[in-house]
């Protein structure tokens, strides 16, 4: 592994510098498009959270912040090792650092697998509890129970299901009383409205999980793409392709991986902590 294959630039460039700086600019532009792709989901996040603040508070508390924190650490570590891999390629004089580049890239890819493993555990827990997207999938006894418990904890309110016969009777009685006697039962009526609000909170928990799965799912796809790119770079590094005059694929793969990390750095607080 001490060989260096000298790189020749493509015919339409004047020299290697022009080729490398073109590739780097292209990559940065591509990263811009990636950020803008996610931006739509971030706007969706903001709008749905603003429209349903109580629901958001209760639903986001269902996420496991410990697992989220561990995953954040895993990704930050992987960002560090990929940066070291780029550095090793930049300072690779006679091919003596090929093994180092390969090792650092391999460690980064292992971190990515770790991230996906933890994400898999989180996902299966949510699927088990029925904490999913859309009313069709969210309408699960465990999901409803989890949301109700969350509401009791967050707002000190008991939630009664609309299908509960005694609750319906109370609601009807309050409504009838209010229409007959006017103002004197207004406080009872107000408490009924509060019940109805919390019921909405329970039912609309699916919106939070819709956003959660879209954001983390799209991010997960990017993790997988990043892993594939880094694996390809690793294979080339194994062949001794990268040295101080040519390391563009390592650098671009590293840039992409930093973006994948950076998006998670935003997702973690926005979904788990806010």
């Amino acid at each position: 592994m001490s060989t260096v294959i000298t790189h020749h630039h493509a015919h339409h460039f004047y020299d290697k510098e022009q080729e490398a700086s073109s590739a780097k600019l292209g990559m940065w532009l591509f990263l811009v498009t990636e950020v803008l792709l996610f931006s739509g989901l971030f706007v969706g996040y903001t709008v749905i959270k603003t429209l349903n603040p109580e629901m958001w508070k209760v639903a986001s508390a269902q996420l496991d912040w410990v697992m989220g924190s561990v995953n954040t650490l895993v990704l930050i570590t992987s960002s560090w090792t990929v940066a070291l891999a780029v550095r090793a390629a930049q300072t690779n004089e006679k091919g003596e650092k090929n093994g180092q580049i390969v090792g650092l890239l391999a460690f980064t890819i292992v971190c990515a697998f770790g991230f996906l493993g933890i994400k898999y555990m989180e996902y299966s827990h949510k699927i088990h509890d029925g904490l999913l997207w859309g009313t069709k999938y969210f309408n699960h006894p465990d999901a409803i129970a989890a949301m109700k418990a969350g509401i009791k904890e967050t707002f000190s309110l008991d939630v009664v299901a609309l299908s509960d016969a005694s609750f319906l009777k109370t609601l009807e009685a309050h409504t009838a009383a209010a229409s007959h006697h006017g103002h004197e039962l207004i406080s009872h009526y107000a408490s009924t409205v509060k019940y109805a609000d919390t019921l909405m909170t329970v039912e609309q928990g699916h919106l939070f999980f819709g956003i959660y799965f879209l954001l983390t799912g799209l991010h997960g796809i990017h993790v997988v793409i990043g892993m594939s790119v880094l694996t390809w770079v690793l294979v080339l590094a194994q062949k001794g392709k990268f040295y101080k005059d040519y390391y563009t694929p390592v650098e671009l793969g590293g840039l992409y991986w930093h973006l994948v990390d950076l998006i998670w750095i935003y997702l973690f607080p926005l979904l788990y902590l806010v």
Binding site: G44, V47, I48, L51, N52, M55, W133, G134, T135, K136, Y137, M200, Q204, H206, L207, G210, I211, L214
Partner: peptide, 14 residues
């Protein structure tokens, strides 16, 4: 496909 409701007012969307 997934019925996420982000654009559907009946499901809390806009």
């Amino acid at each position: 496909i997934m019925n996420i409701g982000i654009f559907d007012p009946a499901l809390g969307g806009d």
